[in-house]
């Protein structure tokens, strides 16, 4: 039973890691139906930014709390700027082009950013400082859950609720939903569609940056390639949960995390990915739109 609980929590951590990245994926898809493959790279850039900022602040002798707050804020701003710029450069000119063109552009952007960081920084693995301190009250449960895991769960839940609130109850959220339904009609009733899309990218990139900081701090290392693998898994999780759905992205990520964890724990990690993707295929056979996805009726 203890083993089960450990695997459950391990899967929950992994799932939350996927979820932090999947949220941005699914949000962008929900608004403009673009699979933003560069999203994983934004996550990686967020982590790199936090590494540089925290390195500088540590040298200056700031305290731990100030470092994590400032590093996160800088990472969020920097990544959001990247997200905004990428959309303007790589996606906006292709908005009325066939969807495949934007997809190729996204893949190109992903490769560009990876190689840019590879050249500008390094190909080596770098150590990432543990920004999240160990909480005293978790000490008795340390073999089940650690503070960085707790922070990841909490932040994932907060980001999910925040995004849901943003989309459901705010003015910009309303504009996002309208844009998602029909860009042409939305612009006819006075919604600045370009601005809505820019905001979507900024918010999505900011969540990726938060993910980057927390996950790198949890794992303790990063290199230019971390965004690619994490991005693919997060994308799968978003599809599993129903792409375009905010709670779906979180649910899909958790399901994927648990699947991998339990399969590794009770069967074998040799075929971990095989099993995870087999599970994905099975779910999509029975629920083509994903677990929480609504099968869209075509609006003519």
């Amino acid at each position: 039973m203890e083993y089960f609980l450990e695997l459950f929590l391990g899967g929950l951590t992994r799932g939350s890691i996927y979820a932090l990245i999947a949220l941005g994926y699914t949000m962008v898809y929900g608004i403009i139906e673009l699979i933003n493959f560069a999203h994983g790279e934004i996550y990686m850039i967020g982590a790199f930014t936090a590494l540089i900022v925290s390195g500088v602040l540590t040298l200056l002798g700031w305290n731990a709390l100030a470092i994590i707050v400032i590093a996160s804020i800088v990472a969020v701003i920097y990544s959001a700027a990247y997200g905004y710029t990428i959309e303007k450069i790589a996606y906006k000119p292709l908005r009325n082009a066939p969807r495949l063109s934007a997809l190729i552009s996204a893949i190109g952007m992903s490769l560009f950013l990876q190689n840019y960081v590879l050249l500008a920084q390094t190909s080596d693995f770098l150590p990432f400082p543990e920004l999240i301190p160990e909480f005293g009250f978790l000490e008795p449960y340390s073999n089940f859950i650690r503070s960085s895991e707790l922070v990841i769960f909490a932040v994932t839940a907060a980001v999910m609720l925040g995004l849901t609130f943003l989309i459901k109850f705010t003015r910009i959220g309303k504009a996002m939903r309208a844009t998602a339904q029909d860009k042409m009609m939305a612009s006819l009733v006075g919604i600045d569609v370009n601005r809505v899309i820019s905001v979507t990218f900024i918010v999505g990139s900011a969540t990726a940056a938060i993910g980057g900081v927390l996950i790198a701090s949890h794992i303790g290392q990063l290199n230019y390639y971390i965004g690619f693998i994490a991005g693919i898994k997060a994308f799968v999780a978003a599809v599993l949960g129903g792409i375009g759905s905010i709670p779906g992205a979180v649910l899909g990520s958790l399901v994927l995390g648990w699947t991998e964890s339990f399969f590794t724990g009770y069967v074998s990690s040799d075929y971990e990915d095989v099993f995870a993707f087999l599970f994905l295929v099975l779910i999509l056979i029975f629920r083509p739109a994903g677990i929480l996805g609504r099968s869209e009726t075509e609006k003519v």
Binding site: E6, G10, R14, H218, I229, T264, G265, S269
Partner: peptide
Amino acid sequence: YEGITPGAVDYSAVVQKIKN
């Protein structure tokens, strides 16, 4: 005796398995 997936985001499940 296990093979792990290189590049995975974390290995907590494998580590639990080692412990177990």
